[in-house]
Nucleic acid binder design. Structure first.
Lengths: 340, 340
DNA sequence: GTGAAAGCGCTAACAT
DNA sequence: ATGTTAGCGCTTTCAC
């Protein structure tokens, strides 16, 4: 197949070790020697075999990122940021998706393909603390996202409760009182959308409003269609909120579609706030007010944490990093802007 | 570190080869032996080291997919399909993005990290035939997308000219005559958006309309903001098309945003057709008519081609596969306003 | 400063 | 049907 160290050594008339030294930029090589070897390398078009190197060193230079769905732009955008962050540490990213299936999440966390990857960044939806505690795989794992765990792993997530409260606060400030929450999901044990729902409850309560559970809509998933269906279900059962806080932007987009179909004006009749700040929300007929997590920071923190553990340095405590976020106000809650 | 074949062999009191036989499902192993070995495997939690296997067999079971941007939902959705298609062949996908940079495309095609991957699926924007001809890397390469090459590589792409003509035909059928094209890009040598633009020209000509080059707008990129800017530029220079055919859905979405801001109604004032059928287009206030390439087919054909070449079977000719597509008519197109 | 040789975990001949 | 051994390409002692 390819050109090996041995071939280069033969060509240059030196030992393998010397070539290796040159390739790895070892300090103590005479310039003359280095030049000779480099010439042989160039002539033969030698490139180191990473597989062999990895076998020898026990690491692959690949980290895995597992997210629920690429179809969700939030994760797509996040994946891009992770790839870039990893590249800065000379790591390659292997991207996987779990389809939001607990089975798949388990498989991935248990070390599916573990010999190919040095570490894993996982954004779980259904995984429970027990699953994590039962994990036998030794490759470092960094968790991403809203779920909270009592397991000893690094966890990178914005303060979801506070962020949700910020969103609801904004709605309250605009004078809205009947604020619905779209995208609750009843998991077997806990609710994945737990924290954002809690933020909704807390902020309403803080404003002296009793959270109306009739305004909480459970969805099957976190996509546009789920948002559209949820909004339709809410309206169909006779509830007419004056504002909607959606679990994420996709649900918000779906909800807006339903509102438009029903002839309701956004934000005059119903204001909408999303979560994620996907680019899509900046371009609709009505642009979307949303919570914007700092995706670059999330990606960077996740990769940095992983790389640090990979470096072998003893990292004492599982760390909980809290990247920033901000409320981005757009047309779906503000004064509507039309060309007329 | 991990548990090796040797450890299992020792534990089970057999030779390494026997364990290897069990792991690889070799036929001639007595059930008794198999059970004994399997038990040792389970007890020790043995999992084969893929790196070592690769070093030995010369393949990794990993293929790379390089697309311009994850931020473009078309590629994100496609990536998901590729991951699934690859999984059916027991291949893992390593996803990379080129940021639409020629440098990065070159790097990837030249075998960046090539020792880790068995083959590559690349969706180039700027790469030229010469670049491909100069490629020294031997790992199989499958090309995706609109660009056409004279290089000896498999190429999977829908018939872009025909698809574009279908889109323009649709607009013509609705009575539109001043049809703009958004998203042309002047590459140094060829135009990436060449084929779709050609479809636009051909179909107009076939309808007896002289293509008005003043209605062709060059963009910097292929994103929403580029579409918004292109539409604004067109209107600002006094051109008022009655329909727009966008290079892709993102540009279409951006264009629609600008139209809305200018108080123009879609489709009454200006009809819009996109290309890609990203899910986003199905949920806007005005849903988007678009060309829908069969992404599953594209992914499947690409992976199948690659896997076939990887299998070692002599595949005679570079194949040009033409997956299907269809026109999906939604709200952004309608009959031309007859009033005024 | 450079060379020789062992070994990472696995598979594929070859032996038994 | 099962065991023995060489070697994939590299890094890493340990000599020299």
């Amino acid at each position: 197949m390819g050109v090996s160290l041995k071939d280069v050594a033969q060509r240059a008339g030196v030992s393998i070790k010397t070539v290796s030294n040159v390739v790895n930029n070892y300090q103590h090589v005479t310039p003359k020697m280095r030049a000779k070897v480099q010439q042989a390398i160039d002539e033969l078009g030698y490139r180191p075999n990473l597989t062999a190197r990895h076998l020898r060193k026990g690491r692959t230079g690949i980290i895995a990122l597992a997210v629920p769905e690429f179809g969700n732009p939030y994760f797509a955008e996040l994946a891009g940021a992770v790839v870039d962050a990893a590249a800065r540490h000379d790591y390659t990213v292997l991207v996987d998706h779990t389809a939001g299936l607990r089975e798949k999440e388990l498989l991935v966390s248990q070390g599916f393909r573990s010999h190919v990857i040095d570490g894993l960044i996982l954004s779980p939806i259904h995984l429970e603390t027990e699953d994590l505690m039962a994990r036998e795989e030794t490759a470092p794992l960094v968790l991403l996202g809203e779920r909270e765990y009592e397991a000893p792993y690094d966890h990178i997530a914005i303060d979801n409760v506070a962020a949700a409260r910020t969103a609801v606060r904004h709605l309250l400030d605009q004078g809205h009182r009947r604020i619905a929450f779209l995208g609750s999901r009843t998991g077997r044990e806990r609710q994945p959308a737990h924290l954002r729902l809690r933020g909704w409850r807390e902020e309403l309560a803080a404003a002296g409003i009793t959270p109306d559970e009739a305004l909480v809509v459970v969805t099957d998933g976190y996509g546009r269609e789920d948002g559209a269906a949820a909004m339709a279900a809410l309206l169909d059962r006779g509830e007419r909120p004056d504002a909607v806080f959606a679990y994420n932007d996709l649900i918000a987009v779906g909800a807006m579609r339903t509102l438009t179909e029903r002839g309701l004006d956004i934000p005059a009749d119903v204001a909408v706030v999303g979560f994620d700040d996907i680019e899509e929300g900046r371009y609709g007929t009505t642009t979307l007010t949303t919570i914007s997590p700092d995706k670059e920071a999330i990606a960077r923190l996740a990769v940095d944490s992983l790389v640090e553990r990979l470096s072998g340095k003893p990292v004492p405590e599982p760390r909980r990093a809290r990247p920033g976020y901000r409320l981005v106000v757009r047309e779906s809650t503000g004064p509507r802007r039309t060309g007329t």
